[in-house]
């Protein structure tokens, strides 16, 4: 499904701020893979996501999504086949537009005819949205006409998730999408995530700082450091792994001690 070959990215090349954010990174995902990614701050997790989503073009290497070379495809064109959630629940929805309008926007973007600029939302579409919202079990189905700005962070994140997956994308990128939510809400959004991904069999990449989560969710776990993937486990090896093993591996792979509280404490 996703085929990343030897990509590199250096920010601010030739200046004192030069930073090699991705170095010769390769990654292959099968259709339906649910991969969790851990790594300390600055390891390159978000940069990897940005590279896949097209926030910048990589300096070297290529990215294939579903067999199509998207290395030089602009961000807004890639997003037709990508779903993406950020840590900040405010980033995924338009606050002054209603819930219905936000969903309409997400729904229409994937419409078959990309040049149907003047297509409108039909009654049938609205009924479909209501149905989908009801599945979130947050009472949003009765608030379709309210602006999204009135919703809580958890509700907005759940709505963003729905918007990203209503028409299943080829790849779903979750960038710590529950980190800014309170534990109960985070649990709920995670539950919805699990259900949606399972239902549509969506290939998913998820960044997390929670080691338990990293091993419990999905079928494969990656660890990144310094713009590289330093650990890649799946199957039995992953099933036998404990959080301590993972930390041990990190030390071994990175050749240094963890200095990141967020990883140690979780």
């Amino acid at each position: 499904m996703l085929e990343i070959s030897h990509i590199s990215k250096t920010f601010n090349p030739g200046t004192v701020n030069e930073k090699k954010a991705l170095s010769d990174l390769s990654l292959h995902l099968e259709q339906g893979d649910f991969v969790t990614i851990v790594g300390s701050n600055g390891a390159g997790k978000s940069t990897l996501f940005n590279a896949i989503a097209g926030a910048f073009y990589v300096d070297e290497g290529s990215i294939l999504l579903g067999g199509e070379d998207i290395t030089f495809k602009p961000e807004y064109k890639r997003s037709r086949e990508l779903g993406r959630l950020f840590q900040d629940p405010m980033r995924g929805t338009a606050p002054h537009m209603t819930i219905g309008e936000n969903l309409a926007l997400a729904y229409l973007r994937t419409a078959k005819n990309q040049h149907a600029y003047f297509s409108r939302i039909s009654k049938k579409d609205l009924a479909f949205f209501q149905d989908q919202l009801a599945k979130l079990d947050m009472g949003l189905e009765d608030r379709m006409k309210q602006p999204v700005g009135l919703l809580s962070g958890g509700q907005r994140q759940a709505l963003t998730l729905l918007m990203s997956t209503m028409v299943p994308p080829k790849l779903l990128l979750l960038d710590e999408h529950t980190a800014a939510l309170d534990p109960a809400t985070a649990e709920k959004v995670l539950k919805i995530t699990r259900e949606v991904v399972a239902e549509h069999h969506i290939t998913t990449l998820m960044v997390t700082h929670n080691m338990h989560q990293a091993l419990e969710l999905g079928n494969r776990t990656l660890m990144m450091d310094n713009g590289r993937i330093i650990l890649d486990v799946q199957g039995e090896k992953r099933a036998d792994m404990t959080v301590n093993d993972l930390l041990e591996q990190f030390r071994a792979g990175a050749g240094k001690n963890l200095d990141n509280d967020r990883i140690l404490l979780s």
Binding site: E75, Y76, S79, G92, A94, P95, M97, L105, A111, S119
Partner: peptide
């Protein structure tokens, strides 16, 4: 009427949340 079409909604989203727009296949 125009603002209720797909293009109209995209224009409104562009002014409302630029981040979202870039991540949702709208060309700002």
């Amino acid at each position: 009427a125009f603002l209720g079409t797909r293009l109209g909604l995209s224009i409104r989203a562009t002014g409302d949340n630029r981040d979202m727009v870039r991540a949702s296949s709208i060309n700002p």
